[in-house]
Amino acid sequence: MFAVVLLLIVSAFTFWIFSALPSDPAALTCGKNCRPEVIEANRERLGYDKPLVEQYGAYMKGIFAGRTYGEEGASVHCPAPSLGYSYDRHECVTSLIASTLPVTASIALGAFVLWMAIGVGLGTLAALKRGRWQDRLATGFSVVGVSFPTFFLGLMFIMIFVIWTGILPFPRYTGITENPVDWFMALILPWFVLALISAATYVRMTRNGILEVMNEEFVRLGIAKGLPRKRLIVTYVMRAALVPIVTIAGLDFAFLLGGALVTESIFNLPGLGKLTLAAVVNSDLPILVATTMVAAVFIVIANAVVDVLYGYLDPRVRVK
């Protein structure tokens, strides 16, 4: 319930802040040598002269019912989930997002799987071998990983794997349905860049979480009654230690789905982040409003999913 209210607030605020800005969406509708009368006429035609609340209402209605932009003769219809129309690109924003989202989703999904595997794996190793060289290595990796700016690591990877050694071709995105091998080859570097940087945080969280849970009474009980160590760790300790990690992981994943801005720009991947950056350059407001809202929707959904998962992992939450 709170999620729906949150979505409404976020979308209204996004709409308001972009409309309150000095850049004029009507001025974008005709070229450089545009007469003021044409801009005014377009403003009226596109509804930018109406009060903001009315504009917001029309926008919201467009999401559910589709919307026709322009008037008779030169109108464009964008079907049901209509998030606006880009006058700069002459395309429905929804279809722009639909074409870029799979790219970002591919990046986010692969990176997520990798970073959870690396982060939780190394973190568990570090906790179980506490104080030994494995622990030192994992914690060292974690602090160095956190310190790498994404763009620097990405460029270094391109340098090492593409230019110097030539192991990989320069990433060129191909849809998974077209050619899965090319898809994989193009995404492997971005996955690793994002995974290594994010995994660093997870190594530390997993390690500290497990060490903390190991001090709990129920673990001592498990040891006392002779549970095999492996079973104890996997079923009891990990489950308790993973609870806080799930929260952060869900949000991190949602943030990534909203557009991996830096990674997409370095590896030249045509995802949501790239779309946003291009829209920034062209002051393409409809796209910016839409990408911000889509990203916010992911975050709100992730919050809700995390809440449900929380109840599943931690029975105490469910009882309340």
């Binding site: 949150l6 976020v10 605020f13 996004t14 802040i17 972009f18 800005l21 000095p22 850049s23 943030f255 909203g258 557009g259 801005l261 982040g273 946003t276 950056l277 829209a279 920034v280 002051s283 910016l288 990408t291 911000t292 990203a295 916010a296 992911f298 975050i299 709100v300 919050n303």
Partner: peptide, 14 residues
């Protein structure tokens, strides 16, 4: 709930 980096970038110029 706002995608902060995205919003920071989108709002930078205006």
């Amino acid at each position: 709930a706002f995608p902060s980096l995205l919003l920071i970038i989108a709002l930078a110029n205006p």
